[in-house]
Amino acid sequence: MRRSPRNLARLVTALALVAGAATATASAQAADNPYERGPDPTESSIEASRGPFAVSQTTVSSLVVSGFGGGTIYYPTDTSQGTFGAVAISPGYTADQTSIAWIGPRLASQGFVVFTIDTITRYDQPASRGDQLLAALDYLTQRSSVASRIDSSRLGVAGHSMGGGGTLEAADERPSLQAAVPLAPWNLRKNFSSVQVPTFIIGGESDTVAPVATHSEPFYTSLPSSLDKAYMELNNASHFFPNTSNTTMAKYMISWFKRFIDNDTRYDQFLCPNPSGLAIEEYRSTCPY
């Protein structure tokens, strides 16, 4: 069927209006949240071993820092999208940063600056590890070679075992943090009712070092009911699930940091309603966020 010049002109105008509306919508969304980084997420993109950002790394010697034991910084090489949020991650008792090294580039490639740290000694207790996480963030944002890449108002913490207990301590000590993710956390202190930081606790069903019944679950229950919080228990997982590549852990850790460090509501779909599946024994939360 042939269209008259007038009808063709109307069609072109209509298509232009649609394209303009789509552009305006995208611009409005970007204006609503200037912290969004990367393309729209999918199940595949957050389960992938690497995200959309190329990553570089730099080693920080213990000799040039104070308050913690140095570590490795992983960061996106792209500077075209502005600054990034940052996360410091602590290892567990007797461990060093190599035990959590896989998390660094995986999280950084999703659009974060990530600092996997060594502690002052391998035997430091949770309260000390919490202080060290905060010292690492201060170094990262004030003195590190990548400080200019970081938005110092958008910071988070994570850690394994005593480092997970330290994550809770850091969140309690510095309420300006945007997110915390304790992994198989261990701490003799059980009450964290004063925490104001959105917290996502991940425990292992078969953990015999920090059994969820006496660690992760009481920690989660003690957090304020008004807080944005979640608890995920991994099916059949031991205490050491954070020490090797774990897609389920990474997927929801990324989603939590994206949602609360970047205020990125595109990741709500992975957190609300509560996820389920063969890898998840139990999931609780205060969703919707």
Rank of each mutant, 00 (worst) to 15 (best):
S109D: 02
D40Y: 13
L168I: 07
A237R: 11
T23E: 06
A19L: 15
R6K: 14
M1H: 09
R50I: 05
K190Y: 01
E205Y: 06
A108W: 02
P211Q: 11
G92T: 10
S66D: 12
Y74A: 01
Y74V: 03
I150D: 02
R3M: 15
D40R: 13
V114P: 03
T214Y: 05
Q81A: 11
M253A: 11
S152A: 13
M232D: 07
A108H: 05
A127N: 10
I73A: 09
S44C: 00
Q132C: 10
S109Q: 05
K258I: 05
E205H: 01
V209L: 12
G82C: 06
T248G: 08
G20L: 15
V157D: 02
S245N: 12
W186C: 05
V12R: 15
S56K: 11
P175C: 06
E282R: 14
Y75P: 06
F270M: 12
A9C: 00
N33V: 07
V195T: 10
Q110Y: 01
R143W: 03
Q132K: 13
S238N: 12
P76W: 13
R149H: 10
Y35K: 11
A171V: 03
V209W: 07
D264C: 07
Q132V: 09
T214A: 14
T247L: 08
G51V: 09
V65A: 06
D268N: 13
A180R: 04
Y35L: 13
T79R: 15
A88Q: 05
P218L: 12
T25Y: 14
V12C: 02
N236L: 13
Y289C: 03
S255M: 06
T42E: 05
W186R: 14
A230W: 10
R122E: 07
S90C: 08
F240V: 14
T221K: 14
V209M: 10
F240K: 02
A14L: 15
R106F: 00
T94I: 13
L188R: 12
N263A: 07
L15T: 03
Y252E: 02
W186G: 04
R106A: 14
V195E: 04
L168M: 06
D32R: 13
A88G: 00
W256E: 07
G203M: 10
M249Q: 15
S61L: 02
A21W: 09
S245R: 12
R174Q: 11
I150T: 03
D138P: 00
A210Q: 10
V181G: 10
P185V: 00
S153Y: 05
E233R: 13
E36G: 03
P52S: 05
T248H: 11
Y93L: 15
R3H: 08
S27I: 06
N246L: 10
S245L: 11
F257A: 04
N236D: 13
A170E: 01
V113L: 09
S145W: 01
A230F: 07
E36W: 03
S255C: 07
R143D: 14
S66V: 07
A101F: 04
W186H: 12
P105S: 14
D172L: 08
D118S: 12
A16R: 11
R189V: 11
Y267Q: 06
Y35C: 00
A48Y: 07
I46N: 04
R37I: 08
S61K: 03
